[in-house]
Amino acid sequence: MYYKELVRQMYDIGLGSLPIIFLISIFLGAVTVTQFYYQMDGQLIPTSFIGYIVRDMMIIELAPTFSCLLLAGKVGSNMAAEIGGMRQKEHIDAMEIMGVNTSAFLVMPKVLAAILMIPLLVVVSAFVGIAGGYIASVPIGLFTHDDYVTGLRLFFNPHNVFIMFVKAATFAAILTSVSCYQGYFVKGGSIELGEASTRAVVYSVILILVADYIIALILT
C-alpha cells in the first residue's frame, strides 16, 4: 500500500514536473549567458569564462533553487489541495477508522518521493540550462562553440555538485512537508482550502530561500 503510493508520487513529481523543469531551465541558461555576455562586453575577461559561469551558476544556484521554487508552486500547492480536499471530504477520517496511520500514509510517501525525484529533476535542470546557454549564444554568434565548451571545462569542482544535491534534497523536504502540513490541518471550506494552498507555496518559498542562504554559508 505504502510502496504503491510512493511509486505514484514519484511518477507525479518526477515525470509530471519534467516538461516545466525542461522549459524554465532552457530559458534560465539562455538568460544567464545573454546577460553575462552583456556585462562582460568590453572587459578583459575571456568570453570562454561565460561557459564556466553558466555551469557553476546552474549547478550551485539556479538549478536547485529555481527548480524548487517552481516546484513549490506546482507540486506544493497540489499536495496541500489534495490532502486538504481529503480532510474536507472526510477521507482522512475514513482512513483513520480503517486503521491507517494517515500522517504516515499521506505525508511520508510524498516527502520520500520528493527527496528521491527532485534531485534528479535538478540534475536535468542543470544540464538543460547549460544546453540552453549554448543554444542562446553559439548559433547567433555571441561566441564560438570552442569558447563555450572550453569554459564548461574550466575549474570544475565536484564539491559544487555536492552542494547542488544537498540543496535539492533539503528544498524537497521543505516544500513537501510544509505543503502537506498546510493541507493536513486545513479547517473549513473551499476558501480555507485555497488559503492553505497559498500558504503552502508562500511558506515553502520563504523557507527555501532561508535554507538556500544557510546552506551557502555552511558549504561554501
Binding site: A94, I97, G99, V100
Partner: peptide, 29 residues
Amino acid sequence: RMEVGMLFQGNALFDSMTIEENIRFPMDM
C-alpha cells in the same frame, strides 16, 4: 478499529480508486 465500520455523510469513497479497491481497502489494512 477492526470491529468498527463507519458510513460517512459524504460517503468518503476514495475518488482515485475503483469501487472494488475502495471496498478492499479495509481488508488490505
